[in-house]
């Protein structure tokens, strides 16, 4: 059993899309469950249980991660960005607009994670090549589109 000195719960403070949340969480809680169940930010999704699908992708302190392979306690003090924070009020981001214009989503379940990966890409590399776009989206599974329209959308948003 766990040694008594090390706690299984922790108070954490996480800033998500500009709002700071102070919560007590079990150490075992994954960041994705913290976002979805505790904070009601249900835009980030869960599509697998092995860290493969990327539907839960969020940006933590500027770095793209899969929030199912990070404990909520590990995000203590971090600044987290999720799909809910991409649009500025009613103004969709360029990527969000391009996803619509290029029919880059069907069921929309992978879309939040896909948008976060594409957002991270364009921040680091505003003019990616076709190969760089594919490489950047490798961690996000889409079962509806075959990705082709997603590539087009990211390319269009970059231009």
């Amino acid at each position: 059993m766990a040694t008594s000195a090390v706690p299984t719960e922790r108070a954490i403070s996480v800033t998500v899309n500009g709002t700071t949340y102070d919560r007590e969480v079990e150490a075992r809680k994954l960041l994705i469950h913290f976002l979805r169940d505790d904070l009601d930010l249900t835009g980030s999704h869960i599509g697998c249980d092995t860290g493969n699908c990327g539907a839960c992708s969020v940006i933590v302190d500027g770095t793209l991660v899969k929030s199912c392979m990070l404990l909520a306690v590990q995000a203590d003090g971090a600044r987290v960005e999720t799909v809910e924070g991409l649009a500025a009020g009613d103004e969709l981001s360029k990527l969000q607009q391009a996803f619509t214009a290029h029919h880059a989503l069907q069921c929309g379940y992978c879309t939040p994670g896909m948008l976060m990966s594409a957002t991270a890409l364009l921040r680091a590399n505003p003019s990616p090549s076709d190969d760089e776009i594919r490489k950047a989206l490798q961690g996000n599974i889409c079962r509806c589109t075959g990705y082709w329209n997603i590539f087009e959308a990211v390319k269009a948003a970059a231009e």
Binding site: G43, V83, L86, A87
Partner: peptide
């Protein structure tokens, strides 16, 4: 459908 889905509001 896209307006809500690209914002995580589905």
């Amino acid at each position: 459908e896209d307006w809500r889905l690209v914002q995580g509001q589905g």
